[in-house]
Amino acid sequence: MSELKLIFAGPVGAGKTTAINVLSDKPSLNTDKAVSDVTAARKATTTVAMDYGCLNLNETQKIHLYGTPGQMRFRFMWELLTNELAADCAGLVLLIDNTRASPFRDLKYYAQEFSNLIARKKLIIGVTRSDLRAEPERAQYESWVEELGLTAEVVFLDARRKSDMLALLQRFIGDRVDADWPQLLADADNAPERTLPTVEQAPAQVSDYLGENIVMKDSIVDDVLNIKGVEGAALATAMGDIVTSSLDDTELDDFIGFMAGIVPVFEQVSDLGQVQSVVLKSDNSENLSVYVEEEQVLGVVSSNRTSVRILRQQLDDLLQWG
């Protein structure tokens, strides 16, 4: 029996669980749990360990399908899958949700996080949910792939359609297995629709694509306060003027506004490139995280017991989902 392995990765809601459910011959193993963070605004459950399924291409060849959790707080599973369970995989399918505010940020982030695997394995980028928003288009993704120095094909697909997912597999491993792909695709098109595990999602609220510069609305302060461990926040313009704040400390407001002017100077005198966040940590009180966007800064005060990396990921999801 010839066996191959394939890993699916990408942000929450991109379609990893759905893709594996669609492809797997038998009900796939899912480790979905109810969410208690900002993801609840998008879907009711999220993968916390991994998804697993298996597809028999014929009597002698099968492919094992592994799906990673989308959230950084389960990053240990990324390392376990790529270094242990599926270290000998055929490659990585990186699914990107086309309705997120900045798909490029997701592409860049996950390409960096899985860079060791990408350096030695094949990569295909699958763009999902383009039926809900057509932009960015394929040419834009191909430009990003070139900018990031990646070698990867970009495929637009519907993770709910088995024929789409089989066509993706054919692109990926068609030269490594002796499978009757035309027949597999025909059978997928003609097969009765399967009942898949329900993935509860909030009604899609898709905004127009406005390019890669994310604009933070005034309501971001109220949204951030719903994140566990956050104790206050303030939004300021690039000129340092406070737009809205939940903080009772005017000096702290002024400091966050001051950081709006300091960060560009820091970028100019350092070799670090674009600065997206600055964190001031305390051992015995609150931390201050300042997040920098185009013409705006957001200051967030959080408990020193709150992971600043997880806080950043939670904020990114809020911004990505508008």
Rank of each mutant, 00 (worst) to 15 (best):
P69C: 10
Y66I: 13
L65C: 05
G211W: 12
L92M: 13
V290I: 15
A238N: 06
R120M: 02
E212G: 07
L65M: 02
G10R: 08
T68G: 02
L210Q: 15
A238T: 04
D248W: 08
A191E: 09
L55E: 00
V154Y: 01
R129S: 01
S246Y: 03
D175I: 01
V221A: 09
E293P: 00
S245V: 08
F156G: 03
N190C: 03
H64D: 07
M50F: 15
K217C: 05
L81F: 11
M72L: 15
Y291G: 01
T46R: 03
E135Q: 11
G67A: 00
L81T: 08
L150W: 07
L318I: 04
A167D: 13
G261D: 09
D218F: 08
I220S: 09
L166W: 06
L210I: 13
E212A: 01
D25Y: 02
G322V: 02
D254T: 13
V224D: 01
I20R: 04
V243M: 13
V206E: 03
M259H: 03
S36Y: 07
Q71A: 14
L272E: 15
L94N: 08
E212D: 15
K108G: 03
V48T: 14
D178Q: 12
D32G: 00
N83V: 05
L184V: 13
A233N: 13
V154R: 01
Q61V: 08
A111K: 05
E79S: 12
T60H: 10
A186N: 09
G91N: 03
Q320Y: 03
K121S: 15
P136N: 11
A186I: 01
V155D: 07
S163N: 06
N213T: 14
V292P: 03
E3M: 11
P192A: 09
W321P: 00
A202L: 14
D249Y: 09
L185Y: 03
N304E: 12
K33D: 06
N304W: 11
A119V: 05
M165T: 02
A40L: 13
M72C: 04
N213Q: 14
D175R: 07
S307A: 05
A87C: 08
F104A: 08
D158M: 07
W144H: 02
S219P: 01
L247N: 06
L288G: 07
N213M: 12
Q140T: 15
V290R: 14
M259C: 13
A188Q: 04
N21Y: 00
A202M: 14
R75M: 11
A204I: 02
L225G: 00
L315N: 05
I242M: 14
E113C: 09
M239W: 05
I262R: 09
D187N: 06
D88K: 06
T237N: 11
K33S: 14
P264D: 10
M259R: 02
N21D: 11
D253N: 15
A167G: 11
T18P: 01
Q170I: 00
T18H: 00
E251F: 10
M1K: 09
D88V: 12
D249C: 10
F266M: 15
W321A: 06
P264Q: 09
I124S: 02
R305P: 00
D175Q: 13
K43P: 00
A234G: 08
N226D: 09
F8C: 01
E212Y: 00
E251S: 12
A19I: 01
V145M: 01
T60D: 12
E113G: 03
N58W: 00
F74C: 05
V38M: 09
G257A: 07
D249A: 11
I220N: 12
